[in-house]
């Protein structure tokens, strides 16, 4: 039961990163793909009707995490107090940027929100990457299950690290590049003309950078957490995840060079995110938050899960809610399918 919820929470977080990832990525490459205000409006139109629904995956995943592993939620949210509060502020600014830009017909107003939207998206991508880096690296958990990490200490991933050290900064940069590429692929898929051309170019550069960064970050992870691959030798079927990473990378490069195809590129970056996060979850299992000092203090699905009755009831309503949500989203994306233009209704 705990394992099932581990998979469900990991799945929901992955869905969040894939879906809101292209919103954040669109923000990150906002000024790279759109040179004029009209072009940037086009990029915003691509995410306009869907970004809010995508962000809900974060709330739903957070809710599921709270429900299934309340002790972990308590420990990690209070331990990462400052960065999480900053994430909140950035999410607010991002939302304002997307939604308010079009409300006033004034070019200074639009420029201001373009910068807010793009800046907040860049920082959010970095924060989320650093967050994953923190979870992989571990935190100084106490015996009562609590911890508190300052924003930085000596920038080294030792026993008493900060939220930011060289490793988590690296994972932050990886996240920025990956989500930026994913966003560019989404923009390319949804647009035509100059914006499409530029988005494709960004997608190609991004995919090439990801190849390098994947190798670098894997090496860094092995250096910081030498035992991280133990699960892969214990359960060899997990090797499909790194395999998927390779396939996704190949698809991204192939569809940007040999046979240009925006849909394949987008599916490639989405698949890359799924495989990377899936791989991280696979490597961590059954640990949810490793201790950077004594491994016995790590929070695992066994010492932080809610009681079986609640988890069992949850499976029932979660399944119903999930089927409904997939239905809404299918309808939503179908309604707004196709390329966006500057004419017509809505964004």
């Amino acid at each position: 039961m705990e394992t099932l919820w581990f998979v469900l929470v990991a799945f929901m977080l992955t869905a969040y990163v894939v879906l809101d990832g292209f919103d954040l990525g669109t923000g990150a490459v906002h000024f790279l793909v759109g040179k004029t205000q009209k072009e940037r409006a086009l990029a915003l139109r691509a995410i306009g009707p869907v970004w809010d629904g995508n962000e809900v995956w974060l709330l739903a995943a957070g809710g599921a995490l709270y429900f299934a592993f309340p002790t972990l939620y308590a420990s990690s949210f209070s331990g990462f107090y400052l960065p999480l509060t900053m994430v909140l502020w950035l999410l607010m600014l991002r939302a304002l940027g997307v939604e308010l830009r079009g409300h006033v017909d004034n070019s200074m107003w639009r420029s201001m929100w373009d910068v807010v939207f793009s800046g907040a998206s860049v920082l959010l991508a970095i924060f989320f990457g650093a967050a994953l880096g923190n979870v992989v690296r571990g935190v100084p958990l106490r015996s009562d299950g609590y911890f508190f990490v300052p924003l930085w200490t000596d920038w080294m991933p030792g026993p008493s690290p900060g939220v930011l050290d060289w490793y988590t900064v690296l994972t932050g940069v990886v996240a920025l590049v990956v989500l930026g590429t994913h966003g560019a692929n989404f923009v390319a898929l949804k647009t035509e003309g100059d914006v499409n051309t530029r988005a494709r170019r960004v997608g190609l550069y991004g995919a090439s950078a990801i190849v390098v960064l994947t190798v670098v970050s894997l090496a860094a992870t092995l250096y910081v957490r030498p035992g991280i691959l133990a699960n892969f030798s214990a359960r060899p079927w997990g090797i499909v995840l790194p395999g998927l990473v390779a396939v996704a990378l190949a698809a991204m490069l192939w569809s940007r060079t040999v046979r240009v195809d925006d849909l394949t590129a987008f599916l490639g970056s989405a698949g890359f995110i799924v495989a990377m996060l899936g791989g991280a979850a696979f490597a961590l299992y059954p640990t949810l938050l490793p201790s950077s000092t004594d491994p016995a203090l790590s929070l695992t699905i066994h010492n932080v899960a809610a009681a079986p009755y609640g988890l069992g009831v949850g499976i029932v309503w979660w399944t119903i809610g999930f089927v409904l949500a997939v239905g809404y989203f299918t309808y939503l994306y179908r309604s707004f399918r196709g390329k966006v233009t500057l004419e017509g209704e809505g964004y």
Partner: peptide, 9 residues
């Protein structure tokens, strides 16, 4: 956690 998670779903 039940009611808060259900709100999301």
């Amino acid at each position: 956690g039940q009611t808060l998670a259900m709100e999301g779903m």
